[in-house]
Design a protein around this nucleic acid. Structure first.
Length: 560
RNA sequence: UGCCCCAUCGUCCAAUGGCAGGACAGCGGUCUUUGGAUCCGCUAAUGGUGGUUCGAAUCCACCUGGGGCAACCA
């Protein structure tokens, strides 16, 4: 786990109390209950960390339960993706369950409710039911079928199950109160008819329980103690409690709500993700610009970083938005201690070292890690007469605070030599195409014996040895923190960031990385953290920028 | 408009009737063979009005503001 002394949020305090008092007479048991109809995202990660974390911290168990009660939308491919992503995050469930395995038990409970007069078959159509439910300010009115006899209800329910009726002909509803101030309690629907093939149960069933019915009872059946969900289910707690009580579960599991994670500049709803994918705004569910766990993974973020981020965000009841800076901090903080540094030139500018012997190649030792990272290792990087540096590291007419190369200036080539720019070569259009420099042979490795200081250190590669690569530079997918906060008549697609992806071809990376496997992470010194992409091939390397380095020069530039 | 939930630095989270604190961001400095990292310092908050109390961010009332609920979705 990423932390040994987890923050005591209000949920953990409650669980600690319940564990100490023995309230449930059994070990703490939580659950993660995804519906297998989409890919897990950063918001799920918070819930996973909470539920799995609590089970671990309190010596309890955690169940992975697929809430697969809607045959229209669910698919086995999503259960595989969800399992893969939970494991990637670093968690393993104690038990794996499916709500669809409880269909028989759930049906028995429904029959019992009918027998008790607590549920009835309603034969009004969808529209009538909606109308009769009333509104938030006006009470609903009972269905004309509400007072059917127990016998008739039992008969109808059995025939619904037997497949005698078409979709929509009848529903099973709890008999509570059509005037209830909580809309959820106005005789909520328990079962609907769906002649559809379920991805696990096939055609065994043609009636399917709704969320409110299946969820609480599934918790109760499994002996869940703490059922943690997001704020929007607060009103559903009434029906949750009603059902587990009517079904006779004691002590009943307790639902507690917390605020979902909302990350600035992102969207995670399945509907919106689907549109982004289908309309081609992104390349797929694992597009590195998306905050699906598959996108995050492809972007090069580690599970440890996500866990640290989730811990840092905390758990509370207040709906909140989290700044992207907090996320990026967690990512950099993790990568800083983890990945080797290598040299990569993004926009190459040729440099000829005029006093360096033609044809000579030196191998210079370059540490993989800076002095303050407790890891060791190094590789040799070739140095020769013709190099590339980044265009951004040269200015013909540099301002005072620009510490890099300019005419007549001396800088250090990282792990290399001090060089001084003597000439600037331009093409017919006046663009700088080459720099001519001299090097100081006494500064090999980057130190000058005479104690002479240079302002700047820049990265470089040897022109003849560097490997061409493609860089994919990502920015936020949206231009505004809240992509749903747009003028009337527009939606989140109107605030897509046209610069969310910049593909750089012809970048030059040092040869040491040429044969590394896909998924290898690096810091390209002074540029950012990168990971080799799934598309990367030997001879056609592709790197995703996971996150930039903090850049105080960019800030300084912005001031003027 | 009925019911429910919520309200602390710019952001996120603490303080559980007794000195409002941490993290991120920002600003300034230190250090530096990454304008990275580190280290140091600074800025910055209890939505409002009443009440209870020796004492209120905390308890109560009202107000204001934000969010959720009227799918045969979850």
């Amino acid at each position: 786990m990423s932390n040994d002394t987890p923050r005591r949020d209000f949920i953990r305090e409650m669980v600690a109390e319940d564990a100490a008092s023995g309230r449930f007479g059994r070990p703490i048991c939580t659950r993660f209950p995804p519906e297998p109809n989409g890919y897990p995202h950063i918001g799920h990660a918070k819930s996973i960390c909470l539920n799995f974390g609590i089970a671990r911290e309190f010596g309890g168990k955690v169940h992975l339960r697929f809430d697969d009660t809607n045959p229209f939308t669910e698919d086995i491919k999503y259960v595989e993706a969800i399992k893969r992503d939970i494991r990637w995050l670093g968690f393993e469930w104690d038990e794996e369950f499916y709500a669809s395995d409880y269909f028989e038990r759930l049906y028995e409970i429904a029959v019992a409710l009918v027998r008790k007069g607590k549920a009835y078959v309603d034969s009004e159509n969808e529209e009538e039911i909606r109308e009769h439910r009333g509104t938030v300010t006006v009470a609903g009115t009972p269905s004309r079928y509400r007072d059917r006899s127990v016998e008739e209800n039992l008969d109808l329910l059995a025939r619904m199950k037997a497949g005698e009726f078409p979709d929509g002909a009848h529903v099973l509803r709890a008999k509570i109160d059509l005037a209830h101030p909580n809309m959820i309690m106005r005789d909520p629907l328990l079962y609907r008819i769906r002649h559809a093939t379920h991805y696990r149960r096939g055609d065994a069933w043609c009636i399917y329980p709704l969320y409110d019915y299946a969820h609480g009872l599934s918790d109760a059946i499994e002996g869940i103690t703490h059922s943690l969900c997001t704020l929007e289910f607060k009103d559903n707690k009434d029906i949750y409690d009603w059902l587990v009580r009517e079904a006779g579960f004691t002590p009943p599991p307790e639902q507690t709500e917390f605020a979902r994670l909302v990350l600035d500049y992102t969207v995670v709803s399945k509907r919106k993700l689907l549109r982004l994918v289908n309309e081609g705004h992104v390349t797929g569910w694992d597009d590195p610009r998306l905050h699906t766990l598959s996108g995050i993974r492809r972007r090069g973020v580690t599970p440890e970083a996500i866990r640290a981020f989730a811990d840092g965000v905390g758990v509370a009841r207040k709906p909140a938005r989290t700044e992207m800076a907090a996320y990026e901090h967690a990512v950099r903080n993790d990568l800083n201690m983890r990945v080797p540094r290598v040299l990569c030139v993004v926009k190459p500018l040729k440099v000829v070292i005029t006093n360096y012997p033609e044809g000579q190649v030196e191998q210079l030792e370059a540490s993989y890690y800076p002095h303050d990272v407790p890891k060791t290792g190094s590789r040799m990087v070739p140095f020769s007469r013709e190099l590339y540096i980044d265009r951004d590291d040269f200015m013909e007419d540099p301002p005072k605070k620009f510490y890099r190369l300019g005419p007549g200036r001396e800088v250090r080539l990282r792990y290399g030599y001090f060089i001084t720019c003597t000439d600037v070569v331009k093409d017919a259009a006046g663009e700088v195409v080459e720099l001519r420099c001299t090097y100081d042979p006494a500064t090999r490795g980057g130190d000058s014996p005479d104690g002479r200081k240079v302002q700047g250190t820049i990265h470089w590669v040897s022109a003849a040895h560097a490997v061409d690569c493609e860089l994919r530079l990502y920015e936020t997918l949206f231009t505004v923190p809240d992509p749903d906060d747009v003028p009337d008549g527009q939606d989140f697609t109107s605030v897509l960031n046209p610069n969310s992806l910049t593909v750089v071809r012809g970048a030059k990376v040092e040869p040491s990385v040429a044969a590394d496997p896909i998924g290898s992470r690096y810091q390209f010194e002074r540029t950012g953290y990168f990971v080799s992409d799934d598309d990367s091939k030997p001879g056609a390397l592709v790197f995703n920028r996971t996150v930039t380095l903090r850049d105080s020069w960019a800030k300084e530039k912005g001031k003027s």
